[in-house]
Write a protein that binds this DNA or RNA. Structure first.
Length: 537
DNA sequence: GATGCGTTGGGTCA
DNA sequence: TGACCCAACGCATC
């Protein structure tokens, strides 16, 4: 490209100045640089028909987090002599109009492996190629290029963490020097009539002021990400000794993890920079934990899921997904709604779901508990239903990681030990015997004695009255009995696995229907027995 | 076919 | 808190 022409940096993820290869390249030798973010109304504008405040696709917490990230990016760009140009509309159409109007000769954007961007980016690249526009689209969201790893493994993504590590080898890109620190940016040219606006506020997008009584405590943006990162890295012992499974899911005043996931999701934090910071800490301590449980191991998990997701057609579905066990999950909208709206009657489960709604974030093990409960542990509901709720409400919801974890927790892929079920009663109790977490997120139970707080339906009526919480009136009775439901789930999964084995994974809709019918008949037979037991109690 | 392994279960016992 | 058993899966490797 001739020096002195116009460049456009298209921000999607990668909402940062530091270690941003696309931005660095876009700035190099350009007379004018147009930093663009396109607001897709479908993603950002209020939808009153959704089950929670937010747009059709995202809860209000994540929309706010994104707006804060954009405002921070805009402020950083301004310090470098530029600004963020915000446009509205279908991203492809908006971009084509800008490229033409501004006579852009160089288009830069971070490579994205999600199906949505894969489809969009093909259109964009075709347009650019026809118009003679140079495109630079580096892989900088992850430590590895998923395509490289899949190629190294003869075209198929590795399906276990250990095999992923073996194939991936040393992350050479992640260890390479960061992008040059940018001290100034080329000016913005004449923007003409492209409908540029500032970063909108939530109110400007049409959201009510008092949509929720408690919004997420996590602020979006690169500045906040770097502050959080520094805070975490200052605690060298903590970083070195980090062991994911040992974290306390009930810790909410000071979460047991870094809470950097939402910043990685939007690219407010460079995964390469994070990786190098952890390595620096590890170099300077005597001993440290190792993947998969170490902090570095968590970043590699992220790459693992990105790689499998990229290399697996229909990764976000059961049907047509070759790595997903075909299971005849229950269809029960009432139960899904009870789970989603924190009305299962299990305080540990409901408190986690309230934290999800209010904060858009909860500890990894807490996510495990509610996902296991919804799917293979108790309710036997389709993992896609839970995935949808997480995808909407989490501020860190990430297509590859969210779907990967739901596949994992539902024993549909990666992990198959379906007899290992998280107890909705005893698991949380181990960490928080007093039930402070429950008391915080479910204040209706705040006066329930700790002996009953994980199973309030067992409290004598006198205790319930004293605690001002009558079970069945002020707080729901449990939707199922964990003992019987979890046993039934195990039986069902054993049968579903057998069917998958017998048919070599090629299970038709009809096969699933038949098995589902059998499950219903089995359940009918069990029911009278269960009722008798209940009457006895 | 046997064997070993897999990020993080529950329960009991010392 | 850790060691051990329970019950037991799929998958990779040999």
């Amino acid at each position: 490209m001739a020096s002195g022409s116009n460049s456009l940096i298209w921000f999607r993820k990668g909402l940062r100045i530091h270690d941003n290869p696309a931005l660095e390249y876009a700035a190099k030798g350009s007379s004018y640089l147009y930093p663009v973010f396109v607001i897709d109304p479908h993603y950002m504008e209020p939808d009153s028909t959704a089950f929670s405040p937010g747009s059709a696709r995202a809860g209000v917490n994540r929309i706010r987090f994104l707006l804060e990230s954009l405002a921070d990016l805009d402020s950083s760009l301004r310090k470098l002599g530029s600004r963020l140009l915000v446009l509205k509309g279908e991203p492809g159409d908006v971009l084509f109009r800008c490229l033409k109007e501004w006579d852009v000769r160089r288009l830069c954007f971070e490579y994205d492996t999600e199906p949505y961007y894969q489809a969009l980016d093909i259109k964009v690249k075709n347009y650019a190629s026809a118009a003679g526009i140079e495109v630079f689209s580096p892989v900088s969201h992850t430590l590895f290029n998923p395509a490289d790893i899949i190629q190294k493994n003869s075209g198929r993504p590795p399906l276990s963490y250990q095999s992923f590590l073996k194939i991936a080898g040393q992350p050479s890109w992640a260890s390479s020097p960061l992008s040059t620190t940018i001290s100034s940016l080329p000016p913005i040219g004449n923007v003409g009539n492209c409908g540029i606006s500032n970063v909108p506020t939530l109110q400007e997008l049409g959201y009510e002021d008092s949509g929720q009584d408690e919004l997420t405590p996590f602020r979006g943006g690169e500045s906040e990400a770097l502050k959080r990162l520094r805070g975490a890295m200052d605690e060298k012992e903590w970083v070195a000794k980090f062991e994911k499974p040992k974290g306390d899911p009930s810790a909410f005043l000071k979460p047991a993890t870094t809470v950097l996931s939402p910043y990685l999701k939007f690219g407010c934090l460079s995964s390469r920079y994070f990786y190098q910071c952890i390595q620096d800490v590890q170099k300077n301590v005597k001993t440290h934990t190792l993947p998969p449980v170490s902090l570095l191991g968590q970043l590699l998990w992220r790459d693992f899921f990105y790689t499998v997701a990229f290399g697996t057609p229909n990764f976000d579905r059961m049907n047509g997904n070759r790595i997903c066990k075909q299971i005849p999950w229950n269809v029960d909208h009432e139960l899904v709604a009870a789970w989603r709206d924190a009305r299962t009657g299990f305080p540990w489960i409901d408190a986690i779901m309230v934290q999800l709604q209010k904060w858009g974030w909860m500890h990894h093990l807490a996510r495990h508990c509610v996902a296991c409960f919804l799917t293979r542990g108790d309710l036997f509901i389709h993992w896609e239903k839970g995935r949808d709720v997480f995808e909407r409400l989490l501020i860190d919801s990430d297509w590859a990681i969210n779907n990967g974890n739901w596949l994992w927790l539902s024993c549909s892929s990666f992990f198959y030990q379906y007899n290992r079920i998280y107890s909705p009663i005893t698991f949380g109790k181990k960490y928080d015997p007093n039930g402070d977490y429950i008391r915080h997120f479910l204040p209706i139970l705040k006066d329930m004695p700790k002996e009953y707080i994980y199973e309030p339906w067992t409290a004598p009526l006198s205790i319930q009255t004293k605690a001002k919480c009558i079970i069945g009136k002020d707080y729901p009775k449990p939707v199922i009995s964990h003992d019987t439901a979890s046993k039934e789930c195990k039986r069902k999964l054993a049968e579903a696995y057998e069917l998958n084995k017998k048919l070599n994974g090629v299970v038709s809709e009809e096969d699933l229907k038949m098995l589902r019918r059998k499950f219903e008949e089995d359940h009918q037979r069990q029911e009278p027995q269960t009722k008798r037991l209940k009457n006895k109690n």
